[in-house]
Every structure is written in structure tokens, then in C-alpha cells.
Amino acid sequence: MKTFAYRTAVTPADGLEPGAVFLAGGTNLVDLMKLGVATPDVLVDVNKLPLDEIADLPGGGLRIGAGARNSDVAADPRVRRDFPVLSEALLAGASGQLRNVATTGGNLLQRTRCRYFMDASKPCNKHTPGSGCPARDGDHRDLAILGASASCVATHPSDMAVALAALGATVRVDGPAGRRVIPVTGLHRLPGDTPERDTVLEHGELITAVEVPPLPFAHRSTYRKARDRASYAFAVGSVAAALDVHDGVVRDVRLAWGAVAHRPWRAFAAEERLRGRPATRAEFTAAADVELAAAEPLRDNAYKINLLRRMTTAVLERLAEGARR
């Protein structure tokens, strides 16, 4: 870990200093600093900023402060009642200890778990631009099948972000250029030629809150995560979904996938295909296939195509069944 100056943020603007990085729960940042992958000159601790509130929005939405801890969000009665997919996604992630510390903002901005990225002694375009992407020919079983580039095939590891993407949440940002609102689906970039940049945020921009808009049918929503052991493991594939079925026909649907791309992957094409169609197993699979048509798997991660197809079908079927009851 490189030495750094430590400051407590009093206003969002305290992060503007060159070389400054915000410290929230630190469960990702401190990890990467120990590994020598993150080398901030200044740590600006945002934990004293009043950002941990979970507030009602008019019409049934929620504003979740960037500093709200993952465990508090997961346990919030409104979240559990109106947006179960979000609570479930959070509970499927990390461990009790980590969720007690990890924040909403930090969770969104956590970096990839690509093993080369997390090792400063190895080449990686994300931590050292231009050094190459050894994952492409090396270990990529857990990495992207959608939206990747020749320079990077990393995935975004968050579970929570997948639920937020499905729910159409937005991110409120405060920064040098003022305040702005970014959809969660537009927060993370695709890697392209500049995989070193994970998101569209500029230096010094602080996430202050995440807003989940009202979505009445989201009370019937769910998160399913496939992983290599029963708990305390990152996803190898995950599905967040909400389904609105009327008379056996899909009136509306929200679908997002995790562990398949550089961003939480909102399956817009699949949603589009499903709206107005019968809520049947065959239709669900067909919709997943529409989205998966763009997949470009590598040597060892093609299984994710089948995995996502099967999981998506099963999750939507389960939601449709629930709607019938």
C-alpha cells in the first residue's frame, strides 16, 4: 500500500484534489490498495457526510443514500416489500461482515474481480493501460460474454447493481460540473479501447444517492445467482427480473444479468421481445436467446450462454407462476 494523506470529507467538493479518491466502506478500495493496484495520493473519507438515509420518493420509489450500508438496505422493510429483487441481490452478495460495511455507492463502483487486474505483478489493460489482456487467452471462465472488447473482457462483480439495473434506478451525482443524474444502466462503460475507465464518472464526482423509481409490479421481482459454492462467492451468472403478467400475457418485464459484461447487463432486447407475448416457457427462452445472440464467448466461458438462457427461463417462469396464484 502506497502512503496517502487521509482527510475527512465535509463537502462533496473535497474530492476534487488531484490524486484523491473517495473512501466509503473501503472493502474494495483498501483491498486494492493493499495489492498495490489502487495507489491514491489522498483518501477522502465520505463516511461523515450525511448520505446514509433511505427515504421515500413520491409515488412509491425510494432514494437510497450512497452511504447506506448494504445490510441496512437489504433489511429495509420498504425495500423488501416493494423491491424484493434488490434485497435478495444484496443478501446474495459477499458476507454479513462485508455487507455491514459496504455502501451503496461503493458497491456500484467496486472494480472487477478479474484475477489479472487484482495482481499488480501481471499485465492488465485495466490497471496498466497498454500492457495487454492476459485473461483473453488465460483464465476467463468467470469473465464477459457480452459487450467485451479485444482490450478487456472483465465483468462487473456486483449483485446489487444488477437489481438496480433491472429496476431502472438512477444515480445522483455531485461534482465539479454540478449535479447530474445518470441511469444505472449508463453508469458503467463498456471497455472498448479504454478499459481503465470503469464508469462515466469524472474525477471528483461523488455519488450521493441512488433513486429507485416507483414500479408497482416490482413487488413481484426476484434475483437468482449461480455460483461455485453455496455462499460467499461471486456470481458466475445471475438474473434480476420483475414481471407483470395480465391474462397470461406479458404486460411488462424488467430483466438484467450479472457476471456477463463490464456493466450490469440490462436485457433490453429480451424485454422488448417479451412485451405483449404469452407468458410461456418457450417465449421466455426465446427472449433470452434474442439477447444472447450478441454473445461472443471465449474458450472457457461459453457455458454462460446456456446458463443465462436456463436461468432466465426459470426465473421468469417462477414469476409468472406467482402471478397466477
Partner: peptide, 13 residues
């Protein structure tokens, strides 16, 4: 009172 992993917390914070 909350359980946490102390290895990822900076003492100064």
C-alpha cells in the same frame, strides 16, 4: 456492535 472484517478497515477512519 456490528460484525465487520477488521482487515479491510483503516484504523484512522
Amino acid at each position: 456492535g456490528r460484525r465487520v472484517n477488521s482487515c479491510l478497515l483503516l484504523a484512522i477512519a
